[in-house]
């Protein structure tokens, strides 16, 4: 029996080496797969953390709001509102643009990340081109985010005036927007023209919207003139006004993506 058993034996070293070789080759193939795919992030929040690291921000922000349900070029897109304590706030737009829809923000080119200083008065208003970049695709809506410390606020109203003289065309437009969505200490406003895509360039909103997009961009805002004043009003669930204040549109500290 012992002799029988000694002959009937699996060959552990041979099989072990084969297992090790298969696993090593698998790891190599997966590495090349990820490289070809552009190392996409696994989720919008994972993409945000990468954007924070690329921007050399030494802290992780708290995601206070997340909206999805939008698509661009057949890719799902998502916008996150982020707070960095009481020092800064950010708006991050990211697209699920990995090959075969596997992952987000491949090659770090599928996102837009703007970081703004927080207003010490407790109300920070920041416009955001979203993803994709609004300036290149004027038919897309811009977002305006409102970070606040007002407890009990169920909705908000934002009023501002845009003026300018781009290319010799004067414009002075008053806007009053109502919040369309809310998060923890955050309200979202959508800012877009009522004109159709074909008529947008000729509409009276064209220059104001493009001007606002230019002002938030840290590479161009210095050429755009004074800060844009904004007035905010907060309302409770019953619709009663519970507070508000004056502020200015924040200018981005950082722009990534």
């Amino acid at each position: 029996m012992k002799k029988l058993f000694s002959r009937i034996k699996a060959n552990p070293p041979k099989r072990g080496w084969r297992i090790a070789a298969a696993l090593l080759l698998t790891a190599v193939l997966l590495f090349f797969t990820c490289t070809m795919a552009g190392w996409p992030a696994l989720s919008p929040e994972h993409a945000l953390r990468r954007a924070e690291r690329r921007a050399l921000i030494g802290m992780e922000g708290d995601v206070v709001f997340e909206t999805g349900g939008m698509r661009y070029n057949m890719n799902a897109t998502c916008t996150l509102a982020v707070r960095y304590g009481n020092r800064a706030a950010a708006l991050f737009g990211v697209s699920q643009d990995g090959p075969l829809k596997l992952g987000w923000d491949r090659n770090s080119t599928g996102s837009a990340y703007y970081v703004f200083p927080q207003d010490q008065r407790g109300i920070t208003v920041a416009a955001f081109t979203g993803y994709p970049r609004y300036m290149g695709f004027p038919e897309e809506a811009m977002f305006i985010g409102l970070f606040h410390d007002m407890e009990g606020a169920d909705s908000a109203e934002l009023s501002f005036t845009l003026t300018g003289e781009p290319f010799g065309t004067d414009f002075l437009c008053d806007y009053t927007l109502s919040s369309v969505d809310a998060g923890d200490g955050f309200f979202l406003f959508a800012f877009s023209s009522a004109a159709t895509d074909e008529d947008f360039v000729e509409s009276p909103d064209y220059h104001p919207i493009r001007d606002l997009a230019g002002r938030i961009d840290p590479w161009t805002y210095s050429q755009r003139g004074d800060d844009i004043a904004a007035r905010v009003r907060f309302f409770d669930a019953a619709g009663n006004e519970i507070g508000g204040g004056e502020t200015v549109f924040a200018r981005a500290l950082l722009q990534g993506g």
Binding site: W39, R50, R54, A55, L56, I57, W219, L254, Q255
Partner: peptide, 13 residues
């Protein structure tokens, strides 16, 4: 990490 990509904050700030 090969997934880190460009430290874009440097160029701008």
């Amino acid at each position: 990490s090969p997934a880190a990509f460009w430290p874009e904050g440097v160029r701008e700030c």
